[in-house]
Structures are given as structure tokens and as C-alpha cells.
């Protein structure tokens, strides 16, 4: 007799047993893709001995077993239960400020100078903040001159932050010359948006 046939006395018992066995099958190892708050596309590709499985929808989950990765359902409650502490420990997202320079030199535009209070406020709000200062130029002048100029700009900003008594656990200065243009241009183009120093607070 089929215990799962409705109307039979064993039906309810069979259903209960099925539900219990499904619950017991909830995977002990799994991955869940989350929503990106900034709307960037999310995707992971899980490779096991059984092959490749792609996850590209937020909320989608895969059970990770030695026999392979299989689609599964993980409830929001289970995510909270398993990852509540993990998520509570997440540091704030790094924040990048872009400061612009007058042409040819290491003088900040007035608008960029006015961003100082905001940078300092961000640094003091972050736990154990570390800062990267990266200098860039436009394509006016030779690459060698621009390496030097972008380093001068980055050092200027580092000094400016230190004069303002910024309190960070680390401050790293790098320079990219004209090798990392924000706005791609031909050689010799005076592009204000490329004359910049990026300050990232983590």
C-alpha cells in the first residue's frame, strides 16, 4: 500500500516523515548570493569535482556537497541564524574621495579643498581607519614628468591630511602618473577630471 496516498491512514504519518527528512537534509555547507546595495551585477561560479554551477540571482543558493553543488532553498531566517554574528562584524564600505588640481601644479581647486572636513569626519567615524592616497595627472606633458607630478600631488594631499591631524593606522602614498586616466583621452589633452588625487578611507 502507498502510504502517501491521500485517504489512507498512513498518509499523514508519511507526510510528517517526509517533512522531517527534508529538514534534516538542509545542507551544512552552502552559499547564498546576496543583493548588491549599489545594484552592481552579482555572480559566483562554483566548481566542484562534478563540474561548474553558476549562481546569478540574488537570494539563490547552492548546497555544497562533495557530490557537487546543487540548487537549494535557504530561508531568510536561516541566513540570520547562521550569519547574524558574521554580518554584524562587517566593516563599513571603503569610501573614495576624488580631489582635483589646478593645471600643471600641486594646487587643489577650491571645491576640492572644501572636502577636507568630510574626509576627516569619515576617517574618525571608521574603525581602525587606513588611508590610501593615489596621485594622477592628465596627458599634458611627458609620462616621466607626469610620474613626478602625480607623486607631488599625492604627497601634497598626504601632507594636507597630516597637517589637519588626521588619525589613521596607516597612510600609503602611491602615484600612477598618466597611466590611470579617469576620463580616457588622447595624448596632450588638458582634462581637469584626470588631474586628481584619490583618497580612499577604509
Amino acid at each position: 500500500m502507498n502510504p502517501l496516498h491521500p485517504g489512507r491512514p498512513g498518509f499523514l504519518l508519511g507526510l510528517v516523515a517526509l517533512v522531517i527528512s527534508l529538514a534534516a537534509c538542509a545542507p551544512s555547507s552552502y552559499i547564498v548570493l546576496l543583493d548588491d546595495p549599489d545594484g552592481r551585477p552579482s555572480q559566483v561560479v562554483v566548481t566542484t569535482e562534478a563540474g561548474e554551477t553558476t549562481l546569478s540571482e540574488a537570494g539563490g543558493a547552492l548546497a555544497l556537497r562533495s557530490s557537487g553543488a546543487r540548487p537549494t532553498n535557504i530561508s531568510a531566517e536561516q541566513i540570520t541564524r547562521d550569519f547574524g554574528d558574521t554580518m554584524a562584524a562587517q566593516p563599513p564600505p571603503p569610501r573614495t574621495f576624488i580631489l582635483y588640481f589646478e593645471t600643471g601644479g600641486a594646487r587643489l581647486t577650491p571645491e576640492s579643498e572644501a572636502q577636507l572636513p568630510q574626509i576627516l569626519a569619515t576617517v574618525s567615524a571608521y574603525p581602525a581607519p587606513d588611508i590610501s592616497v593615489t596621485g594622477h595627472t592628465d596627458t599634458v606633458g611627458s609620462p616621466t614628468e607626469n610620474e613626478r607630478l602625480s607623486l607631488r600631488r599625492a604627497n601634497f594631499v598626504a601632507d594636507w591630511l597630516e597637517d589637519a591631524r588626521v588619525e589613521a593606522i596607516d597612510l600609503t602614498v602611491t602615484s600612477h602618473g598618466q597611466r590611470n586616466l579617469l576620463i580616457p583621452t588622447a595624448d596632450g589633452v588638458d582634462e581637469p577630471r584626470n588631474r586628481r588625487v584619490e583618497v580612499t578611507v577604509r
Partner: peptide
């Protein structure tokens, strides 16, 4: 897990 982006949890 090959991470193309951006956010996930794994146990």
C-alpha cells in the same frame, strides 16, 4: 567559488 561579484555568504 569563483567570485565575479559582489556579495555572498558561505558556510
Amino acid at each position: 567559488i569563483g567570485v565575479r561579484g559582489t556579495q555572498f555568504v558561505v558556510r
